[in-house]
Design a protein around this nucleic acid. Sequence first.
DNA 1: TCAATCCGTATC
DNA 2: ATACGGATTGAC
Length: 685
Amino acid sequence: MTADPADPPRLPGLGRLGPRPGRSTRADQAPGRAAAEHQPVARVAVDSPLPHLDRPFDYLVPAELAEEVVPGSRVRVRFAGRLIDAWVLARQAASEHDGRLAFLERGVGAVPVLTPETARLFRQVADRYAGTFADVVRLAVPARHARAEAAAQPEPAASPSAPDPSGWSRYRAGPAFLSAVAQGKPARAGWRALPGEDWPARLAEAVQASLAGGRGAIVVVPDSRDLARVDRALAERLPAGSHVSLAAELGPETRYRRWLAVRRGAVRAVVGTRSAVFAPVADLGLVAIWDDGDDLLVEPRAPYPHTRDVAVLRSTLDGCALLLAGFAETAEAALLRQLKWSRPVVADRDAVRVSAPRIVAAGDDAELARDPAAQTARLPALAFRAARAALGAGQPVLVQVPRRGYLPTLACARDRHPARCPHCAGPLALPGAAQTPTCRWCGRAATEWRCPTCGGQRLRAVVVGSSRTAEELGRAFPGVPLRTSAGDTVLAEVPDGPAVVVATPGAEPVAAAGYGAALLLDGWALLGRPDLRAAEETLRRWCNAAALVVAGGTVVVGADPGLPAVQALIRWDPGGFAERELADRDALGFPPAGRLAALTGSPADVAELLAASQLPAGAAELGSVPVHQAGPPSRSKPEQTRTLLRVPRADGQALAEALHAAAAIRSARKSGGPVRIVLDPVELA
DNA sequence: TCAATCCGTATC
DNA sequence: ATACGGATTGAC
């Protein structure tokens, strides 16, 4: 039982193998056990959520597993006395570890689930989000299903022909991007789709280009309705069996079977929801994200990575093309564009003018329609007229209403601008019973608040709730079919013909021939949400709804036409708005211009984590606030606080490293309770 | 001086 | 969790 003498340079772990007096371990109990002749050491990552165990461990590969245990395979190892899962990162001739090595217990399944590319990606995602490798693997690799693994393997599909680039010719740099992808070049683009664009078709063409160039492709969309549309567009263009759709709701067996087909290289094109960005596509040539501002692209499980960030990392690591697409643009996409890291694929003003609906603002209560029916429905006169005209022309009308249940916060009583903290720009709210307005981010009391826009000093509570809207509209337009798409009854499509379609943002059905008009109600409430991204998010929702309206149709937005988001919608200039948004965030040092970390836990635990952290010099602690927990107040729930840390962009990696290291110290000491660490949280309410 | 026991910490 | 090493205790 010795190492191959040809193996350089030494094998310290083997030196002390064999029976030792007075000890009895598993390895000793199998004295006949021999290590693999070549590369007898397997470097593994163990499947443990503990941050201090988030590093490689070395094991000996038993001779009988020499072929089965390869880089990327799942194995079972005895770790601290227990059998746990692990992933093989590498096979090596020797180990750096100067203690005794244990043998791997067994292999799990025949398929190496990690590729060199995805293993590297998972490590980088973990590092960026102060999380562990194991947590990322659990997000990225579906649970193993033995039956799916045993099933017959599909034949690799034929390569498709090159796409017709004419759909992209309306966009400057569009055809150039497509041909770069077809040549396998790592082009990176931000695509702002024109209103009315058949974007699933365009994305399918981009996939087709990558496949025609001999490389694979991934398209990530926010939800299953979008998934179905892209799936259909791909099916129309690609040879049968050359793409799969991946989504969590498929069920474990189907999901794993499709994922395996991708892993084996039998399928090279993937469309899916957020975790599809991790799909092990061989020789990946393109990652495309549709509507990267949608918060469904934020993973809700630790370490909470954003699909866009993962895609950006993948583009860099795998040298593949990247397409960030949407009707609107995020500040993050604008930053990549401003850094010249990505190039804009946009239409010129003439094309926008031709395809955009007419957009008008009706932000004033005084403009409410005189028709009493319209008044109960809170419809401005403009909106009422636009809807009447569309219905009269036999077209459906889309009515977008905010979801119920936004937290009541504070706004200027005069001009309704959200009240923000003079110190950190966080939202002001009344904690509990009416007291002094207090910042929900930094906790400072705003005693001398004054509206920066109009100088007003009085505040009012902003409360939103619009489930009555459909009912009220029904009365405003008697005899017209009324459909609602919200919550758990989301419609994918509505037929042509007059109808009033009430939908919450993100649930707007597509109309076969387009809507004749759209009414975007309660816009001031959307804009008044207590969130850093409220304006950007509002514009995104408006653009997504307005894009469903026919060219020449009318969109009425119920908000103050003086607001920048409203102006951007009227001019259909989401790019300009995103740049402005980015400049604002730059001034505040918030993401994406700076980086934030939110630490949530008991006050003692958060304090302990902070004490153990060697934060970068530029780090600022913005303060701590109590976290309002969902559900009825209960004495059994421990008190929770959230502390925000802010660093300049360049210190982002150092911040994540410091927090991960501090979490490792705490978990090794087994001290205290959990602290949730979220980097660049999207919701900052 | 040695064995039994306790405690902190690493886990290959 | 468990297993190990080092420190501590207590009996000879």
